[in-house]
Simulated assay, not measured.
Amino acid sequence: MKAWMPVILRGLLLVLLVAFLLSPGSFEPLLKPLVQQNAPAIYNQGSLLDLTLQHLRTVFAATLAATIIAIMLAILVTRPFGAEFLPLSRSLVNIGQTFPPVAVLALAVPAVGFGEKPTLIALFLYGLLPIFENTLTALTNLPRSVMEAARGAGMTDLQRLMKVELPLSLPVMVAGIRLSVTISLATATIGSTVAAKTLGEVIIAGLQSNNLAFILQGGLIVGVLAVLIYDGLSAIERLLTRRLGIT
C-alpha cells in the first residue's frame, strides 16, 4: 500500500487541478479569506484553463526545439570529425544559463517584438544546457563491450548511432529533458511581462492589485504542473532504464 501512496496522491493532485481549471468558481469559498472585502477571489481577467494550455504550449514548443538542437550538438561533438567543436558547443548552450531570462527577453523584444516569440527564445536558450550535458554524458559513457560488439557485427557509424547509442542513451536524455521542462515551466511566467499569454498574467495581476488569491492561483497551478510533469517523465525514465537493463 505504501508503494502506491505517491501514485494515489499524484492522481488526486491531477484531479484537483483539472477540477479547478474547469470550474474555478467552486473553489471560491477557500480563497475568499485571502482577499480584501469585495475583491474577486478567482482570477477574472481571462480563462485560467486557456492560460494554462497556452503556458504549456509555449513551454513544450521551446523544449522541443531545445531538445532537437541540444541532441544534434551532442551527437556532433561525440563524432571524431566534430570533437573540436566541443568547447564552442558548451559555450553556446551555456548562454541561456549565463544571461538571466529577463535579460534575454529585454534583448529579444527589439528584434522580434512583444508576445510569445521572445519568451520562446528565452526558454529555448535556458533549456539547452541540461539536455546537452545529459546527452553528452550518455553518449560518452556507453559500455565499451556493447560498442565493440556493434562494430564486430559490421554496423556502420550511422547504424551504431541509431540502433545502439541513442537507444541506450535515452534514459539519461529523458532526465535532461525533465530538468529542462521543470525549469521552463517556472521561467515561462516572466513571459507575461512582454505580453506572452502565460500563467504569469495571474501572478502579475495579483501583485498589481495586492490580491493574494490571484498570486496563489498562478503559483499553485505552475507548481502542480511542474510536479506532475516531473513525475511523469521520471516514470518514463525508469521504464526505459528497466527495459534496457541499465542498473
Rank of each mutant, 00 (worst) to 15 (best):
R242Y: 07
A74F: 12
T63S: 09
F85S: 15
A213I: 02
I190P: 01
L51H: 05
A149V: 10
L128S: 04
P24G: 08
T135H: 09
V109S: 04
V194L: 01
A83R: 15
Q45R: 13
E84G: 11
I229C: 05
A74H: 07
N38Q: 09
S145Y: 04
K32C: 01
E116Q: 13
R238Y: 04
S192C: 11
E84R: 15
S145N: 15
I246L: 15
L31H: 04
A111E: 12
G46H: 09
Y230V: 06
T241K: 14
V227F: 08
L107P: 09
S169G: 03
G115T: 12
R57H: 14
A41W: 00
L76Y: 08
L239E: 13
V172W: 01
L30V: 12
G218K: 04
N211E: 11
F20G: 10
A3N: 14
N134W: 03
L239P: 02
A111K: 15
A150C: 12
L220S: 13
P101N: 08
L13A: 12
N44T: 13
S180T: 09
G82D: 06
A83L: 09
L168M: 10
A39R: 13
I68K: 03
F99N: 10
F214T: 08
N44D: 15
E165G: 01
T63N: 10
P167F: 03
V77L: 05
V194Y: 00
L73R: 00
G11F: 07
I221C: 08
L123H: 09
K2I: 10
V77W: 08
I236D: 00
T156P: 01
M173T: 07
V224E: 07
G232C: 08
L139M: 06
L139E: 06
E133R: 07
V59Q: 03
I215F: 05
L14F: 13
V15E: 00
M147V: 11
L48N: 06
F114I: 04
R160S: 13
L123M: 10
V222T: 13
K117H: 11
N38H: 05
L179V: 15
R57M: 12
T189S: 14
G219Y: 10
M155W: 04
L53D: 02
L31D: 05
V104Y: 01
R160H: 06
P171E: 11
D50Y: 10
G82P: 04
Q159D: 02
L64C: 07
L73I: 14
A149I: 08
W4N: 13
K197L: 03
L166Q: 03
A3I: 12
T67M: 11
G25Y: 01
T137R: 14
V77F: 11
S192T: 07
G218Q: 02
A62F: 06
L34F: 07
E201A: 04
Q97M: 14
L9Y: 07
E165R: 11
I236P: 00
I246W: 07
P29E: 05
A66R: 06
A39Q: 14
T52K: 04
N134P: 09
M5F: 12
A138L: 03
R178H: 05
A66H: 02
A149K: 09
T119A: 15
L64F: 12
L207P: 03
R151H: 14
A175F: 02
L48T: 08
I229H: 02
T189L: 06
A213D: 08
L225Y: 03
L51T: 05
L179F: 04
T247P: 00
I75M: 10
R178P: 02
L21D: 06
M5A: 15
